[in-house]
Each structure stands twice: as C-alpha cells, then as structure tokens.
Design a protein around this nucleic acid. Structure first.
Length: 363
DNA sequence: AAAACGTGGAA
DNA sequence: TTTCCAAGTTT
C-alpha cells in the first residue's frame, strides 16, 4: 500500500503557507523559544520527550540557570544533574544528555554538530530529536516526527497505519520530506507539533479553528475522530515491595544509591525487598535483607502505611515499616546515613518521596 | 518488534 | 475509577 499517494492531493505551497502563517501568529511563548541556541533547543527537546509542556517549563528554567552552557553541564557531577531532573521521570534522559554533552565538548569542540549522522550518533538523540535540533536550531529541512506529527498527518493525509508500530514513523518521515518548507523548516516542523498540541488534539479536535482544515482529507471525509489508528498498550505489572525507614541512634536514615542500570538508575532510595504474595512475612524478609546486604542489625517496628506508585510498565505496592538500626553501618559511595532534612540533597524518585512522607508525618 | 523506561494531568 | 496519554530512545 502506498501511503504517500495522498500527498499528491495536497496543494503543498498553500498548505505550507497556511500552516506556517498560523504558527507565526498563534504560537505559545515558551522559554526555549526565546532564541535558537542549539544547547537550549537540545535540552528542551530531551525534557519534552513523553512529557507535557507545563511540566517541563519550571524544570527547563532551573536547568538552564544551573547548567547554562554545554561546558557547565559537561563539568557537573552526575548527582547534581539527576537532582535537577528529580521528578521529571525517564532519568536515563538526564544521564544520556550529560554523556552526549561531554562528547560534544571533547569531540566537537563544544559545538553541537549540524550533520544528521553526527547528531544522531549522540546518546539519547534518536530520529525525532535529531530532526528537531537540526531544523529548529540550524534551519536544516529534516523531518522531526513525534506523536503530534503522526496524529496530524494521519488525519491530513488519511493515513491508516497503526502509529504505535515502530515501522510507522518512517512513513510519516517520507511525508514530511515531501511537505516541509525549505525556506522555514523550523517553523514548519514546530507548526505541525503546535497544531497537534493546540488544535488537532487526540480527542475532539477543533477542526473549525484549524488553519489547514481545507487541506485535511480526514475532515473532508468526516473521519477526523477515527484517526489516528493506535494500538492499546498493555497493563502494567503489579509488584509488591516492603521498604524500611531505618533510623540509627542519631536519627539518621539509611539510604542507598540504586544500580547504574535499569529502573530509576543511579537515583537514591530507601532499600526495599520484593515480597511474594501469600508467603510474605515482610517484616522478617526485611530484617534478613538488611543483614545480608548491609550487615545491619535492625529491629522492624510497625507499618507506617502503604503507598502505591504507577510507572509506565509496572505498579509498585509498597508496605513501609519504621525500623531501628542497632550499632553502626559502614557508609560508602552508595550507602549513606542521612538526617531527614539532609535528604533534600539527594535525588529521590517520587515513590520514595511518598514513603518518606509517611515517616515525616510521624516526626 | 516488543519491552523497558516516570510522572502528573486530563478525559 | 480507569484509561490514555505528552515534543521518544534504547535494547
């Protein structure tokens, strides 16, 4: 099936003009739109991956204040970068961004490269982000196909591919290559995304306000509410955990740094163990775990409460206990005893913030 | 190709 | 309450 045949039905010159003209009048004022600094464009694009604009804004402002340049970010401690990212989610974005910035500093003399090959080779920069930086920062006519663009073009071009499939992106990239303005690639790409965010929304698109309604084949067919086609995602898996807020004689809480790989990599946490359903003597399992992992003798007290946290692919149900450490625990790079007030210095993921809130409510 | 990888807000 | 999602990338 040739998905691009409908491109031929578009009056491309008028489409570009209607779209870009709308964008120039109606675009939102956003912090990363104040200039075209490739570093700022880059940081904003990474933060915006799978994340709402309103969520990103305060993080972006703080991040640019703390790490204003490629040099500043390259020279920062990873712990500081993760702390700045705390609460944003998908933390590998932060670690990959810093790794990539360090590569730009060393290999490209601190200048974000402007070739598709070089920029796509950077950690955390996939096909979307590469196209976004090239077009927005450098004015190069490359596709930047995100979820917005696939939704908008699936309607305008009446493309019935499942946009949840990895292979679909290629089809939309080919469409963009035919449609994109070579005079204003930045405005064109951003306009497609802005249209998706403001007008051509997932449910109940505002077709009556749409600047390119006349070009939209889904609107013409009355199909705008049936597109895009998108497969449902599967439900997250349930995981039951037991965690302890383990306090030593001086009121300090035992925290540890998570593994460098996988979920919440390199963030700090209250140590926890998975408890398997009916078996569970969670209290005994926790004491055993602390002894094995930290050589810590610990008396587990009463439950402080239970928290639930929903990730994209799993659900944590955590029973949280208070506990008292007997004697000393040897601190090291990834194991620390920290007073409650001192925890603000550490990057803790949201579920562990919730667990700590149960403890903080008692003291 | 499919699964891992976070979070908070909207429908 | 439940589902879906919001400017994706990596493995």
């Amino acid at each position: 099936m040739n998905h691009l045949e409908n491109v031929e039905k578009i009056d491309i010159d008028r489409f570009r003009e209607d779209l870009i003209s709308w964008f120039r009048h109606e675009q939102r004022s956003l912090p990363w739109r104040e200039d075209q600094d490739p570093y700022k464009v880059w940081v904003s694009e990474i933060m915006l991956q799978q994340t709402r604009v309103d969520t990103v804004i305060p993080y972006f402002l703080r991040f640019m204040e703390q790490f204003p340049t490629i040099e500043a970010l390259a020279d920062a401690d990873e712990d500081k970068v993760l702390k700045a990212w705390e609460g944003l989610g998908y933390y590998s974005r932060a670690r990959n961004l810093q790794a990539a910035v360090r590569e730009v500093k060393e290999k490209y003399n601190g200048v974000v490269p402007d070739s598709p090959k070089e920029i796509a080779g950077l950690k955390g920069v996939g096909p979307y982000t590469a196209g976004a930086i090239l077009s927005i920062a450098y004015g190069i006519p490359e596709p930047a196909v995100d979820g917005n663009v696939m939704r908008v073009l699936s309607r305008i071009l009446l493309i019935r591919e499942d946009i949840a499939k990895p292979s679909s992106r290629r089809i939309f990239e080919e469409a963009v290559r035919k449609l994109i303005s070579h005079e204003s690639p930045s405005d064109f790409n951003q306009a497609l995304m802005e249209l998706g965010a403001l007008i051509c929304t997932p449910t109940s698109p505002s077709c009556l306000l749409c600047p390119v309604r006349d070009h939209c084949q889904a609107f013409h067919e009355g199909e705008q509410n049936n597109l895009p086609i998108k497969a449902k995602k599967k439900k997250p898996k349930q995981v039951r955990l037991a965690a302890a807020v383990a306090v030593d004689g001086e009121g300090r809480i035992l925290i540890r740094k998570r593994s460098a790989e996988g979920l919440l990599a390199n963030l700090w946490e209250l140590p926890s163990v998975e408890v398997h359903h009916p078996i569970g003597n969670a209290r005994a399992e926790l004491e055993h775990f602390y002894k094995e992992a930290f050589q810590a003798e610990m008396k587990v007290g009463e439950p402080l409460g239970q928290i639930q946290h929903v990730f994209s692919h799993l659900i944590w149900d955590v029973i949280v206990y208070s506990a008292e450490l007997d004697g000393t625990v040897a601190e090291n790079e990834s194991l620390r005893l920290v007073p409650l007030e001192g925890l603000a210095e550490f990057a803790l993921p949201v579920p562990h913030q919730k667990m700590l809130a149960l403890y903080a409510a008692r003291v």
